Amino acid sequence: MHTLSLSEFRANASAMLDLVEQGQSVRILRHGKAVAELVPPSAEASARVPSWKREIEPLRIVRPDGKTGAQLMVQERLQEDRGSA
């Protein structure tokens, strides 16, 4: 485990993240007291995909008349145009 002060961590953040990526741990001190520890993620945690990154199946609504939402909007706008003219 590597232990370093906050100012050292700020100066070498990229290198410290490289160490963590290689499987090592880094302890960060502020005024001589440990305030954080960077550890590699567990295999289970890295395998999980957050819900906002999962693929979604688009919603497909089939109307009885076969028209899409876009077609209905165009039709409604054309009717509004004819009504105002």
Rank of each mutant, 00 (worst) to 15 (best):
G83W: 01
S5F: 06
A70K: 13
H31D: 11
H31R: 10
R82K: 13
V35I: 08
R54M: 03
R82F: 11
K33P: 05
E57T: 10
R10M: 14
R48Y: 15
A85C: 06
A47T: 14
N12E: 15
A15L: 09
I28M: 01
I56L: 14
E76D: 02
M73G: 08
P41M: 06
D18R: 00
A13E: 13
S46A: 15
L59K: 12
F9C: 13
L78P: 02
L59A: 07
L29C: 03
D81V: 09
D65C: 06
Q22T: 05
T68K: 08
P40V: 02
A47S: 14
A47L: 13
V49W: 05
S51H: 09
L6I: 08
A34W: 02
E55K: 14
S25R: 08
I56H: 12
E80P: 02
I56R: 15
V74H: 04
T68H: 02
R60G: 05
R63G: 01
I56E: 12
P58R: 07
L17M: 04
M73W: 12
A70T: 12
F9R: 12
T68V: 05
F9Q: 10
S5L: 12
D18V: 03
G83Q: 08
S42C: 08
L4T: 11
D18N: 01
Q75D: 13
A43M: 03
A45Q: 07
A34M: 05
V62A: 02
E21P: 02
